[in-house]
Amino acid sequence: MDTSEIASDAKPETVVVPMSKPLLQRLVPYLLIAPTLILVFTFTIWPVTQTIQASMHEPGRATRDDAGRRVPGEPTFVGVDNYTALFDSTHFLGRRFPRVLTNTIFFTTATVVVGLPLALGFALLINRPMRGLGLWRFGFFYTVLLPLIGAANIWAFMFANTTGVINTVLGAFGISGQDWLGNPQLVIFSLVLVNIWKQTGFFMIFYLAALQNTPRDIYEAAELDGGGYFTTLYYLTLPLLRRTSLFLVIVSSTYAFQTVEQLEALNRGQPADRGNLLLYFIFQNLGSSSNMGYVNAMTVILIGLLLVFTVSNFIVFEGRSEDE
């Protein structure tokens, strides 16, 4: 049947032009998003814009006029000089920054690559009926409840070179202890260990919730088809957990980039920046007005890294999701 005929034979409908909505009604959507917009602008867009602008300036030095009044210095535009200085090995920050950047990327990657599979493993382990289930779940989760600075202090006590628990236990077995936070080759691994210990329970809860929301009938069907545990895990569970994993990769990497407290309590970035991370390094260089151009440049790099990390994860995970 030719539908165009019906269309041409049909009586033309009267087009009713709606009267313009009252002003208030038209404004409602804007009013509703206004608080969020104001907050996002005030606490995100405006500071980021200011930071980017300051990263391209050299701060001016304040002086005093004849009456003794303080006259703030005028910043000078320097383009990308503050950025290039950070990678110039003859510059006082350029000698250190690349190492700190490498540490941060390693720390973040290690936390994600080791921490998330561990969290998934724990979730799979306790997502089944077993004796003392509540105790197991609490055992895996309690590290999340500890304040970060408190947890770091516990580890400072564990890692202590001469009086620490780990070296004392090792010594009891005749094994010589290690300088966990003072050895340049070991320190970054010690920091990764503490971070994984602290965060894994938190990530586990998300995996556990996702596992408990997966439909049972799919698993029953897989069982009927003769799928073994690992086959089911690989072909069913992991794809079903993809969205959760995307969320956790972004959250865990963001947390890793933001690590400050545990460095303050454990090693303060030492020795020789082998145990230093980007945000803590920025914090360490705050104490001078003259440094603010570099500090802002480092902050922009940190924000950029986080953006790249987040967007690339979206592309990888979402792209694979659409393929299937």
Partner: peptide
């Protein structure tokens, strides 16, 4: 200790 001792640990030791 190689690398010196940590500030807070030293009086404890």
């Amino acid at each position: 200790p190689m690398g010196g001792s940590a500030w807070g640990e030293t009086p404890s030791a």
